[in-house]
Design a protein around this nucleic acid. Sequence first.
DNA 1: GTTCCGGGGGAAACCGGTTACTGAGGTGTT
DNA 2: AACACCTCAGTAACCGGTTTCCCCCGGAAC
Lengths: 361, 361
Amino acid sequence: MTRKSADGGGGRSTIRDVAARAGVSAATVSRVLGGVYPVSATTRTRVLRAVRDLDYVADARAKAIAGVGTPTLGFVLDDITGPSFALMAHGVEREATRLGHLCLVCSTDGDAEHELAFIETMRAQRAAAVILVGGSADTPEYRARTGRVADALAAAGSRLVLCGRPPLDPGAPVSVVEYDNEGGAYALCAHVLSRGHRRILYLGGKPEHTTAQGRERGYLAAHRARGVEPDPVLRLAGDFTRDSGYRSMRRALEVGLEFTAVMAATDMVAAGALTALHEAGLAVPGDISLVGYDDIPFARDLHPALTTVHVPYEELGRLAVRTALEWGRKRGPEASDEHLLLGTHVVVRDSVGALVTSSAG
Amino acid sequence: MTRKSADGGGGRSTIRDVAARAGVSAATVSRVLGGVYPVSATTRTRVLRAVRDLDYVADARAKAIAGVGTPTLGFVLDDITGPSFALMAHGVEREATRLGHLCLVCSTDGDAEHELAFIETMRAQRAAAVILVGGSADTPEYRARTGRVADALAAAGSRLVLCGRPPLDPGAPVSVVEYDNEGGAYALCAHVLSRGHRRILYLGGKPEHTTAQGRERGYLAAHRARGVEPDPVLRLAGDFTRDSGYRSMRRALEVGLEFTAVMAATDMVAAGALTALHEAGLAVPGDISLVGYDDIPFARDLHPALTTVHVPYEELGRLAVRTALEWGRKRGPEASDEHLLLGTHVVVRDSVGALVTSSAG
DNA sequence: GTTCCGGGGGAAACCGGTTACTGAGGTGTT
DNA sequence: AACACCTCAGTAACCGGTTTCCCCCGGAAC
């Protein structure tokens, strides 16, 4: 018994098995399944019968190689566990399947090496596009290497999309869909400053991380626009996790830093910081004001509800795939490298109080 | 100029392009890249040179069809946005890539139709396994249909894995990796009862949802074990979102339900409920005690920190892929349908207080 | 100087599909 | 009755790889 088994439904059957069972050629089976080519009614039913009997499904890889496959799209993120990443991932996935694409996903845990490797895999998969979600370390080598894979992808007719990550060097064949990271931070910090605060503790991320950098820039710019020089002592590095916020806050309290407000780089960080503040017996916003960034769903369930910056993360993800796919369609003329910048807005809740100064300082 | 361009790096080149450029046959290129077959040093360098010049990467689909591809594994979840789903997804993804598999992902937003369609797509992709993550509506038709796709997958040498979802009818060729949903709820509820509470409001999920059912069973069983008959009025349906918790809690308060503690079906629901309680001026746990389920990272940042049930979600995801893949390996002998049940434990924080009754009730 | 051996590489078959080309058979027109 | 035309199905080439089979050629052994 060869592997060309004609058993009823048992095992992976090929189009030839179906053809044999229906007493026709493989081409005919393909045509019946494919749709448009004229096939007589009796043949069609015989073929469909065989297909059903064998529970046949055409091999998608073979179809793909023949040029009629479901297109695929790869996307990479740091860690699906982060709420804002999850939101973007959701947007990407929803829009991709809406447009009939499959999603290959990979998380890197911040490992640039791994990211590059995955992109290479996507190139091998002939993915229609690769979407890089979330910030990254921004070293010159990194930009150069990412630029190179962007070139490789472009040469293969694919496309690299940066989603929520700043552009590479100009000229790199990438599409960029990001939000106004710095502007959001600026507006948020301005809000805190407008309530009278002057010593605002900034709980940041990794110094080389682009998202952290953008938010810190906004923090600094808002200060300077008000004519207050931010104290460098008040800027703490960390990462974007809840635990980092908790630890940083505790340490700040222990070493006796002086501040009346805290601006956390993310809502997660803010959540950890809030817990540390509570544990220290400090009231928010009575004693200390606190703001976050991202407006994750949970932000409003913290106590007090967290004032933060809303970022249209899911929309960002959707736009990333739409951009990638549209680019692929109209490639011909002079497909300029798109760069979309979505707006953010601060959502004021209950976590920042007005600071009444005894005198006009 | 035909499409067989031999340009330097520009565009998708085939193995034949590389062969032509290196002045060898396609077979030789394949052998150089493949590894083991003896190839002379000079030929090897010539081929590698051509590969580099053309920036050639073998088409993964073609390799797959020839039987030497990177295996793929599909996984389906309700909504990546839910923290516990995200945790499982992370586990699945990490373990899959650790074992050298690619991940095709799809979220269904609870649409069973869509779930079935995706599984069919995975069958066409010849996925090594398909992992269904999270609960589902448990109707007889659903079990029957899922059983059928499980059969189809099994016939194709693939495998369906249910992760965090109860088994199908016995005999269905599926692997199950779940946690003790009911047991966790039982322990949690027992804890609340042990602090003196007798009227515990249960904020549940959709009645047909298996996860919701399991937790409710635990709630009921704990009551009965204590000899207290739970008041049906205290069981509210909803879904597993924060908003649902908020709304249900408000409504419960408005209609004047009497209770001294709240057991939310998930931490998300608990978070919404907590905010509603705060807004109503009720202290937790002073006036009302509150517990959740899932132990999502945020649970400890609520105020008060939430007592809840810890579920090893990430481990669950990892185990799901390991189970699936091991099954595929040892298929021969008498690959019994595995069923793993992971334990949970309640983590006591600050959200439930002791109820002092005026007299022994 | 033959024969034998084995290393290295090419031709061709194969994986599982699609599709351009070809041709058989039936119908309609003059 | 002859011819054109249309419908439908089969043959074969192709997609981009891998692998089997076979041959050629150089060196060692006799």
